[in-house]
Amino acid sequence: MYVMEGNMRKLLIVEDDIALAKTMKRRMEKHGFEVFNCFTASDALLACHRYMPEYVLLDMKLENESGLALIKPIRNLLLEAKIVLLTGFASISTAVDAIKLGADNYLAKPVDTQTLLSTLLDGNCMPIETQAIEETVLSAEQVEWQHIQQVLKVNNGNISATARQLSMHRRTLQRKLQKKPATQKA
């Protein structure tokens, strides 16, 4: 368990899902963080100026905006802050983009409190997607497979909901799920 002693560490959570943001805020406050929530890209930049947080949890999809576009401005303002991009639609390409833009880490939602704390405080916990970047060169089919698995997980295994979210026919999705692409080492 991670509990801070003395001065509280400032954490900015940029998440457009208000219920999720409030839940994360409560969870992180229990571990000694002073937490600020904001729900839009413009509010995020204002909050960075106002609070100067040491840590930023940034959702990749903010209504009609991309959290990726916020990484550079936040990094320019908060040189020493630890920026972690959170997404419900994980892929290797967005992990690479996030790290190149200046994020310190990249995690797929849902994420448990211990993983989040370890990532923010220790920096030792690299997400599977980032480890895979260093170890494996993936084909388009493998990236698609990982994305489908992530969306399926978010939908609690519901094939119909996953197919709708992926704009794919349910039978097509079922066929793709039957064929797992082989891992290709670099």
Rank of each mutant, 00 (worst) to 15 (best):
C125E: 12
M168D: 10
T183H: 15
F39K: 04
N158K: 07
R9F: 08
V137T: 14
M52L: 15
N37V: 03
M60G: 04
T136K: 10
L177W: 03
L138F: 09
N105I: 10
E135L: 14
Q114A: 13
G32R: 01
D122W: 14
P110Y: 01
K179S: 11
N155A: 07
I148V: 09
R75Y: 06
E141T: 06
C125F: 14
C48M: 05
I13P: 00
T172N: 08
L116E: 03
I133S: 01
C125P: 09
E134A: 15
L78G: 04
V111D: 03
A69P: 04
A81C: 06
D97Y: 06
L107H: 07
M1E: 09
L68T: 03
T130A: 12
R75V: 03
Y51H: 11
V151E: 01
S91R: 04
K153D: 06
I92E: 05
R170N: 09
V56A: 03
A108Y: 01
E134G: 15
A90H: 02
S118C: 14
T94W: 06
A163L: 05
D17Q: 04
Q146F: 12
A182L: 11
L79Q: 14
M24E: 04
P73C: 01
E15K: 05
D97F: 08
M126I: 12
E54T: 05
A21S: 06
K25L: 05
L20A: 04
V143I: 14
E15S: 04
E144T: 09
R26D: 13
V154T: 08
T183D: 12
L68F: 08
F89Y: 08
N7F: 14
E54W: 03
A140R: 13
P73G: 00
M28N: 03
L46W: 14
A81N: 01
D16Y: 06
M24P: 04
Q184P: 13
V143T: 10
Y106G: 02
A132Y: 11
L120G: 00
E80R: 15
F89D: 00
N105V: 08
K61G: 12
N76Q: 14
T115C: 09
N155D: 05
V111Y: 04
K109Y: 02
L166E: 03
E29Q: 09
P73Q: 00
T23A: 11
E29W: 05
K179D: 09
E63A: 14
P53M: 05
L121G: 10
V111C: 03
N105Q: 12
Q150L: 07
V56D: 02
I159T: 06
Q114N: 15
L20H: 05
L116M: 07
M24C: 06
P181C: 06
Q131Y: 11
N7A: 15
Y2E: 13
I13G: 02
L11Q: 06
P53E: 00
Q131C: 11
S118Y: 10
L101E: 08
T23H: 10
Y55D: 04
K22V: 08
E63L: 11
T183E: 15
L138P: 07
E5M: 10
S160R: 11
E144P: 07
K72S: 13
H147S: 11
N64G: 13
